[in-house]
Design a protein around this nucleic acid. Structure first.
Length: 261
DNA sequence: GCGACAG
DNA sequence: ATCTTGTCGC
């Protein structure tokens, strides 16, 4: 995979206003509806789902990317590609973090590392799960959207915290596993008020007890709708809070740090 | 001026 | 994100 729109490749030397203007352009080019080359219902991490003799096609390849940071100004990005829960390829890459972490401008800090890791993959995933937000972003151009549009590749953003937007209903202390609550655009988002820009999704929950797990915040990156994005994430979670592609990329990024030190 | 803010 | 051992609760 390589950039289809080089003009969207994150440039950390831009002025803040220019970065935000670029995000507006990216949001304009983003497609927040299903435009996939595979059937999302065929997404699975069940290794045995492919044992049917007459399966008409291979399950789609889903990739996950995550970053870890070196002590200098470099980010290590790891990409893991899976087909039916089977790791078929991994790749890592490093890139400079031109700017510090600034809410709303994350893609200008980590975007190049992500693009480098995805380019290092020889396989072209059918969809990539990115750590961070997609459409749940002030200008509807979070890391997942920025990367997806730049590559014109289907992406989903999975964040552990909500950046902006308003839950349709207050998030309870404890959500049951599988529950999803729409996140709607408000005054702080450049989308019509009430637009569903993502979902709070409870990927895992303890059966009972005092402690509970927080939900994930899933949003479309590019070429997928908010509801399909949650469905896909639900299909890739296997007993852990994070979807398998992201979880594996997370640990790989940590291991890879030693390689670039 | 205050508050809120992915990783 | 990152610094970090044990520890409380499934």
């Amino acid at each position: 995979m390589e950039p289809v729109y080089p003009e969207f490749v994150p440039d950390g030397s831009l002025a803040r206003g220019e970065m935000e203007a670029l995000q507006d352009d990216i949001a304009e080019a983003a497609v927040f509806e299903d435009d996939l080359d595979f059937d999302p219902d065929r997404v699975t991490i069940d290794r045995d789902s492919d044992q049917r003799p007459l399966a008409d096609a291979d399950p789609p390849v889903i990739a996950g990317v995550d970053q870890a940071f070196l002590e200098d100004d470099r980010a290590v990005s790891a990409a893991v590609a899976l087909r039916a829960g089977e790791v078929i390829e991994t790749a890592t890459a490093v890139a400079e973090t031109a700017i510090p972490y600034i809410p709303g401008l994350l893609s200008f800090r980590e975007g190049n590392a992500v693009l480098a890791a995805l380019q290092a993959l020889s396989v072209t995933p059918d969809l990539t799960v990115v750590d961070g937000s997609g459409r749940i972003h002030f200008r509807q151009a979070g890391l997942a959207t920025h990367v997806g549009v730049t590559l014109d590749h289907p992406t989903i953003g999975v964040a552990k915290n909500l950046l902006c937007g308003t839950p349709r209903e207050p998030i309870p202390e404890r959500l049951a596993e599988g529950e999803r609550i729409p996140i709607e655009a408000d005054e702080g988002v450049t989308a019509p008020d009430g637009t569903v820009i993502g979902y709070a999704y409870q990927s895992r929950q303890y059966d009972s007890g005092s402690t509970s797990i927080n939900p994930l915040y899933v949003s479309p990156g590019h070429r997928i709708s908010a509801s399909t994005a949650v469905d896909v994430v639900a299909r890739t979670c296997g007993g852990y809070k994070l979807p398998e592609p992201t979880r594996l990329a997370d640990s790989l990024a940590d291991e890879a740090k030693g390689t670039f030190e």
